[in-house]
Each structure stands twice: as structure tokens, then as C-alpha cells.
Computed example of a mutant assay.
Amino acid sequence: MTKATLADWLDDLAARHGEREALVDGARRWTYAELAVTTERIARGLVTVGVGKETRIGILLPNRAEWLVTAFAGFRLGALVVALNTFSPAPELRRSLVHADVQLLVVQPRFLGHDYLARLGEMSPALPGDGGPLFVPEVPALRRIFMVDDLERLAGAGESVPLEVVRALQSEVAPAELATVFFTSGTTAAPKAPLHDHAALVHQAGVLAEAFGYTPDDRWWAALPLFFTGGFVTGALATLAAGATIVLQAGPDPDAALDLIQHERPTILIGSNLVPALLEHPRLAGTPVAFRKGMAGNTPIIAKFCPADHLCVGTYGMSETATCVTSTRATDPVAVRRGSNGRPLTGVVLRVVDPASGEPAPSGVDGEILVRGPSLMRS
């Protein structure tokens, strides 16, 4: 299992892929080297407001570069990054902030039909505050809220912090320390908040990139929200692990998606609710589509959206295991990739047991799936 922190891993990627394109957000672009430097700048700014090891940083943003920049800046300092669902109504958002003890929140004021400042105001009339320290009983751990557009100002304040301070703090972060909180979808109960450490996420990124057959020439269409583990781990981290490019799409606009697909030529497709709408869009027939890799290779929709010789794989996983625990491989025969959810990934042990007795379930009999492996959540 890989033993590295996410910040050290990013620095290693920058050393290996320096001038390759890492991140695209509209007209804004970053190479791997530029992405590493940008996260250091934001980390210096975060130091000025007291962020350090175990500080809980909440990110309430759509898919934009600042999501990843803030996360990796926090990882450099040993902070715990809390991914917040931008679809959450005020009561659920408050529950997430309180449950995760979020101390610093980075938020975009509005996006599409969502007014996040109004949602904060529903929690307490003292929110969102004026940028200074907060002491609000309704969210008792929360001390500061930064608008996303304030990050550059924060980075400017961080120019007074020697870079060596950030690097010294980064050197004190261990791979076994916690890195992220991602809330589950809450389909059958209240959302849970699995915790994952640095080593688990770095390991998972490399394993997935290899299983999915990613190369530095690939480009991920990042329409799946980064606040889901699927977006952050199978999408962003696995793409970076291959030295490939993340192409961000913020919202569910089919026309904007087709423009992006045409101009940026992404090759990686990972679950997006936009795909059914795109399949029915009159512009699709005239839009060159380059998708060949990704997930859901054993579903009918991929056959409609990708060429016959695509390398998409079938997978199985969950938030608690930092996404996939099984996968077919991009190198598997077509019949295998289209007819299976795959076999265990490196280091994963799976058992199917009778839930009452705990004994192995016979072949063909339903049972409970037990998982052990390096990407399992921390208790």
C-alpha cells in the first residue's frame, strides 16, 4: 500500500508531470506544476487564519477549480476536508456542519437556483457574518466563513507567511492521519460521514487509474460533483494519478456539456446524470465524442454513448470504501467488461456470507457482502 500524504503525492505528480495540463475550468488552466504552486499559495493564506493539523475545512462549492485547490491546500496543513453537498437544504446542511465540527467554511454565495447565504441565514441570523470570527450556538464549531472569491485575497495575506512554514507543517502530516469526510447520499437513512486517511486515498487513486487504463493523454469530463466520493476519488484523484487532465463542468446544462465535450475532447466518462439528456439532444449527432474509458462499462447507456471498442469497466463500491472495491480491468476482454462488476481490487478481500450465521453463502444464494482492504473507512 502506498505510504504518502495527498500533498506529498501532488508534489510528486508535479515533479513528474510538471508542464502537462492538470486542470481545466473554463478559460482557466493549470499545469501540474502550477496546481502545486497554487495550493501552496492558498495554504499560506490559510495559515494566517489559524488553519493547521486537524482543522475542519468545509467546502460548499460546485465543480470549480477552487474546490480542488482548497482541498489540497488544506491537506498540506494536515486539515480535515469536509465535502458538503450543494443540494442540501438548510436543515441538512446545518446537520453536516455540526456533525463534522466544521471550523472554516469556503462557500460560493449562489449557484443555479441555490442561495447558500440564505441557507446559512436560516440557521442563524448571525450568519454568514462579516468575515471575522464567529461564535454561533447553532453551529458551535464554526469560526470563519470565506466566500470563494475571497481566496485570492487570503492568498495575498499569506505572502507574509514564509513558504518554509507551510512545508514544515506539511512534513508533520502522516499518511495514516485523516484527510476527508464525505457524506453518503442518505438513500435509506440519514447521511453517514465516512472518514478516510491520506494513505487510503493515495492508494485508491493509483489502483483505480491502473484498473481503468488511464494514461497521461486522457481527459476526465468532471460533471459528477466533487462532493461525492465518486467525483473526488474515481474522478479527480484517479485522473491525477495517471498524469491526465481534469476538465471541470460546474452545472447540469446539456448545451454547455456538448460545447465542452466538443472543444476539450474528454476521453473518460464516469457516471453523470447528464448522459440521458445528452443522448436525446439534437446536437449530439453533430458533436464529436471521444469517450473511451471510465466506469459503467456493463450498462446499456455506455454502449449508446461510447464507441464499440470502448474500454469502460464495470465496478462495485460505496462511499465507505472510497468508492470501488471491485472492477473489471480495461485490459479484460470485451465480454468480461460488459458482463461483470469485476473482481477485487489490489489489497481487497471480499466475502459473501449468510447474515444470520456469518458463514459463507453458497454460490447463487443472496448474502451479505463483507469487505476488508486498504480503502476502508476509518472508525
Rank of each mutant, 00 (worst) to 15 (best):
A126L: 15
E40W: 08
P307I: 13
T229P: 07
L93T: 05
D25M: 09
P282E: 12
A100Q: 05
T321Y: 03
E21G: 00
G347Q: 07
Q170L: 06
E122L: 10
L120M: 04
W220C: 04
R95I: 04
I57K: 02
G74R: 02
R28P: 05
V202P: 03
R56V: 03
R329P: 02
E122F: 11
P307S: 07
V353T: 12
R343S: 08
R94N: 08
A33H: 07
T38A: 15
K293N: 01
M377W: 10
E21Q: 12
R265Q: 15
A222C: 15
L240D: 04
T2V: 14
P89S: 06
V289M: 12
L35M: 14
V148G: 04
F291L: 07
F75S: 00
E320A: 08
L105V: 08
A193T: 04
D255F: 09
A277I: 05
V139T: 07
V166R: 03
R20E: 12
D366I: 08
P175W: 10
I261C: 07
V181W: 01
V275D: 01
L23V: 03
A36R: 05
N341C: 14
A83L: 12
A244M: 02
E320K: 00
H281W: 14
A199R: 08
I145S: 02
W67R: 04
P307F: 13
F75L: 06
L80M: 15
A335G: 07
L240M: 06
G156W: 09
A308T: 08
L77A: 06
P133D: 13
V233Q: 07
R110F: 07
A73S: 14
G58T: 05
P225L: 05
S363K: 11
V275L: 15
L84A: 04
V106W: 10
L226E: 04
M123H: 00
T331V: 13
G314V: 04
A256V: 12
W30Y: 13
V247I: 13
M295H: 12
R219D: 00
E368P: 03
A209Y: 10
S171A: 15
D130T: 10
A209G: 06
P140G: 01
Y214V: 00
V313Q: 01
A290L: 12
Q170W: 06
T55N: 06
L350R: 00
G339S: 03
L284F: 10
G243V: 12
V81S: 01
V51G: 06
H99R: 11
L376P: 01
G206K: 03
P133S: 13
A14D: 01
W67S: 09
F182C: 02
H310E: 06
A199P: 14
P125Q: 02
A236I: 04
D309A: 07
V289Q: 11
L350G: 01
L142D: 01
P125C: 04
L248W: 05
H196E: 03
G243A: 10
L127R: 00
V313L: 00
F183H: 10
V49H: 08
K293W: 05
G231Y: 11
L345R: 02
H281F: 14
N63W: 09
L13I: 02
A14V: 01
L279V: 11
R76E: 01
T287L: 14
F183K: 03
G129R: 01
P362I: 00
D218W: 07
V49D: 06
A236D: 02
T31M: 09
T184N: 02
A211V: 09
T321Q: 04
V353L: 12
L279W: 11
R16H: 13
H281D: 11
T299A: 11
